[in-house]
């Protein structure tokens, strides 16, 4: 069946005299909860923690040791990370990170194939944006950003540059491109994987990562 035939069950019965509701144009004045005049890092950290993520605030100098510390505390040894630039994790910083973790005795793979992802103890990704209102990190798919990287390993470490934090959920949707640049897959991630299906008891890590760490790096620049 084609589109026009399919729509004919609507268009034939148009009900043309029916009153039609206009599309509201000003959504933001009601929908916006957080504006830029707040401590964005503080609001972001509080919201993310409330959703069950753990947030580490670091400076440009100690972000590497912070990540190594998180992974070390978990006894994670097999780490997946990305090879190329996503957000704060530039190509150079990714390489620096891999080297630092290898020096700490971990096995680091920049390949995000099934064998790597399904056997990894943790993955580290950059993010495309972070949303203060909800404590959300955003992972967009792309050549160097596998959908599985923030999803398959039991621990996800998201690295956020402080400048990437935007105030409100509506800010993210406002800036998304509509054309071919729109990524095929975008995930807004708010806390670790959760279920409360069994008697309302909260359990984390049912299918996605049970632990979500967010490392916020405040650089001097």
């Amino acid at each position: 069946m084609n589109l026009q035939d399919f729509l004919s069950s609507l268009t034939k019965r148009g009900g043309g005299d029916r009153e039609r509701t206009p599309l509201p144009d000003d959504l933001e004045s009601a929908v916006r909860q957080v504006d830029g005049n707040v401590d964005l890092i503080g609001v972001f950290a509080a919201s993310a923690e409330a959703a069950g993520a753990r947030v580490r605030r670091t400076s440009g100098a100690d972000w590497l040791t912070a990540i190594a510390g998180i992974l070390g505390d978990l006894d994670a040894t097999r780490i997946c990370t990305q090879a190329a630039e996503v957000g704060f994790l530039s190509r150079a910083r990714s390489a620096e990170l891999s080297e630092h973790l290898r020096d700490s005795g971990m096995t680091v793979s920049t390949d995000t194939g099934d064998d790597e992802l399904f056997s990894a103890d943790a993955s580290i990704t950059g993010v495309s944006a972070a949303i203060a209102e909800t404590g959300t990190v955003v992972c967009e798919s792309g050549p160097n950003a596998a959908r599985g990287a923030s999803l398959i390993p039991p621990v996800h470490v998201a690295v956020v540059g402080a400048a990437q934090i935007i105030p409100d959920l509506c800010d993210y949707f406002e800036q998304l491109p509509g054309g071919p640049e729109l990524p095929a897959n975008v995930n807004l991630i708010t806390g670790p994987s959760k279920t409360a299906d069994i008697e309302g008891t909260l359990v984390t890590g049912v299918h996605g990562p049970g632990k979500l760490f967010i490392v916020v790096v405040a650089t001097a620049s």
């Binding site: 959703a51 798919s141 792309g142 959908r147 990524p183 897959n185 807004l188 806390g191 996605g208």
Partner: peptide, 17 residues
């Protein structure tokens, strides 16, 4: 926890999907 936006199938260069 997850709000997923899907706009078309995997792009040619995408790592997975």
């Amino acid at each position: 926890v997850y709000t997923t936006l899907i706009s078309g199938p995997k792009r040619l260069q995408d790592a997975d999907g």
